[in-house]
Structure formats: C-alpha cells, structure tokens
C-alpha cells in the first residue's frame, strides 16, 4: 500500500507529469466546452433537426442564409460594430490624453465617474435606456432633442434611431473601460520623448500626431479587435430593448437571429449555420489581429 502511494506521489510530482496536471483544467474545458460544441455546431449546420431525429441535408441550411432576415441581422451587427468603433476609439483617446496630464484637476474623480457605467450589467443599463428612449414627448431622450427644437421620435421603432439608442448604450458602458486601456498605453510612453520634442520646438498637435498616436498603436489595435468581437456578438443590448421579437427586424443582430431561430422556432440546424458564419467572421478578425501583433513571428 505504501509503495503504491509512494509511486503515485512520485508520479504526479515528477517534472514530466506535474505540468500537465497544472494545465489539465484548461485542456478539459477546451475539449468539452469549446471543441466539442464547435464540432457539433458544424455537424448540426448540415442537418435538419426535428424532435429527436436529425437528417443530413447538405448545404440546404447555408442556402437559406440568403434571406432578408439574415441580411438585416448582418447589417445591424456590422453597422453597430462600425459606429461603436468610430466613437469608442478617438473619443477615449482624447479623454485619456486629458486625464493623463499632470495639470488636469480632479482627474481621479473624472476617471472613476466615467468608469462607473462599466459596473452595471447590460440589462440594468438597457432598462434605463429603454425607458429613457421611450416614444412619449416627456421622456429623457425626447426632452433632450426637444431642446434642439426636434419633435419627439419613436426611438426604438425606427431603424436609425434604434441604432443610435444601441450605440449610446454601448458608449455609456464602455467609454470608461477604453479610457483605462488608453491611459495604461499612455503611461508607457517615456517622458524623455516628449521632452526631446519640446527641445525641437514641437507643438502639442505635433506631439500628439507623431508621438502619442504611434505609441498607442498596439492599444488601438487591441481595442479595435475587442470592439469587433463585442460588436458582432452583441445580443444582450438588443434583448434589453426588444426582447426577441422586433417589428421589421429592428435591432436584430446575428446572435438575436440565432436565438430566435434556435430557441423560438426550434430550427437548430439553420441556427447552427448562422452561428458558423459568425464563427468565421470572428476567426478571420482573430487571425488578422494576431498577425498585427506579430505573434506568429515570435512563436517558433
């Protein structure tokens, strides 16, 4: 008995075996909760799945992708991604530069205040914005545009105002987080570079353009990458505004479409095909970003 225990202890403690025990939780989770589901989605995407039985139907599910709902979902997700990146990269860079200056007053307060929305769940934030974007003339959103002389809008029932409402919700929750990313990037730029530029007579704009932006490039790439993923996987925001059914597909994203198809209409095969297209988008973006980071060069 003792020798078995001894052998066992020596075995799991040997330098050959111990590393695999350390990393085994990841391997198990990868196999069970990533690899297996990915393979099973791929298989399901070629099947017609009824109650209990599945039948291979070749590319039928993929052919069905050429419909107006998928196009709407793809457009909504793409637009959303585009607008959130267009706002959530330049704006936080500007605010981070302001917050990084030694001369700025109350900067800790400002940083914390702008970060606070990130603490809320999408649902809590979405509930607020859903009712703030109500169609009545007295709601917050309509009162605000009223100040500009614009009449009340039915925000969540038209596609353009609905997109604005989605983007504002996203900007509200993520502005502070992106500021933190850029702040940490800014803090990595040595002061000496700026001092050298001062000696050469560079003005603030030159310094921003020729030192700050190039130095922030890795952070900018990172933020754009996570924004692309965040944008294309967006679902909870749409759910908070419209649940799962929207008139004319307003606010319906790719993931909302997967949810509707899979869980409301129980068309698992077709839903899987939609999921695969999303997976491909994500993989392509992933490869591009890993390439930009030069990961494949380093790894040999």
């Amino acid at each position: 008995m003792k020798s078995i225990k001894n052998f066992y202890q020596k075995f799991i403690n040997s330098k050959k075996v111990a590393p695999y025990i350390f990393v085994s939780p990841f391997i198990i989770v990868f196999l069970v909760f990533y690899l297996y589901p990915i393979i099973s989605t791929i298989i399901m995407s070629f099947q017609e799945i009824g109650f209990g039985e599945a039948e291979f139907i070749g590319l039928e599910n993929y052919k069905k992708l050429f419909n107006v709902h998928y196009k709407n979902a793809l457009l909504t997700s793409t637009n959303y991604t585009f607008w959130t990146i267009l706002i959530l990269v330049p704006l936080p860079i500007l605010l981070a530069v302001l917050l990084n200056s030694d001369k700025t007053k109350f900067k800790n307060f400002f940083r914390s205040a702008i970060f606070m929305p990130a603490l809320t769940s999408v649902i809590v934030a979405g509930m607020f914005f859903r009712y703030a974007f109500g169609e009545q003339a007295s709601t917050l959103a309509n009162s605000l545009i009223g100040l500009l002389g614009i009449g009340p809008i039915t925000w969540l029932q038209d596609s353009i105002p609905a997109m604005i409402a989605l983007v504002i919700l996203c900007v509200w929750r993520w502005l502070g987080v992106n500021i933190i990313y850029f702040l940490s990037g800014l803090q990595g730029i040595p002061d000496a570079i700026y001092e050298a530029a001062d000696i050469d007579g560079a003005n603030s704009w030159d310094k921003f353009k020729y030192i700050t932006i190039p130095s922030l490039k890795p952070v900018i790439i990172y933020v754009i990458t996570i924004s692309v993923f965040g944008g294309y996987k967006m679902f909870a925001e749409s759910y908070a505004y419209w649940q799962t059914a929207t008139p004319n597909d307003i606010g319906m994203t790719i993931v909302s479409y997967i949810y509707q198809t899979g869980f409301n209409n129980f068309n698992m095969g077709f839903a899987s095909a939609i999921g695969i297209t999303l997976l491909l988008i994500v993989l392509v973006v992933n490869l591009i970003q890993l390439n930009l980071f030069g990961l494949f060069k380093k790894e040999d």
Binding site: I27, Y34, I38, S40, G262, L278, V282, N286, L290
Partner: peptide
C-alpha cells in the same frame, strides 16, 4: 517547459477572443 506548451498558449490567446454567444446552441444541447 513541456511538449505542447506553445500550442496551448496560442489556444488560450485565440479562445480569449471567441465569444461564447456563438456556441449557445451546442452548449445548450450539451
């Protein structure tokens, strides 16, 4: 240092980016 270490690390980097939303259907079945 062990065999497969680099592959595992690249896998971690890739999975960091894979949104679980894509896998909701198969995960539900699982």
């Amino acid at each position: 240092d062990f065999k497969g270490k680099n592959i595992l690390f690249v896998l971690v980097l890739i999975l960091m980016m894979v949104p679980i939303e894509i896998l909701i259907l198969p995960l539900y079945k699982l």
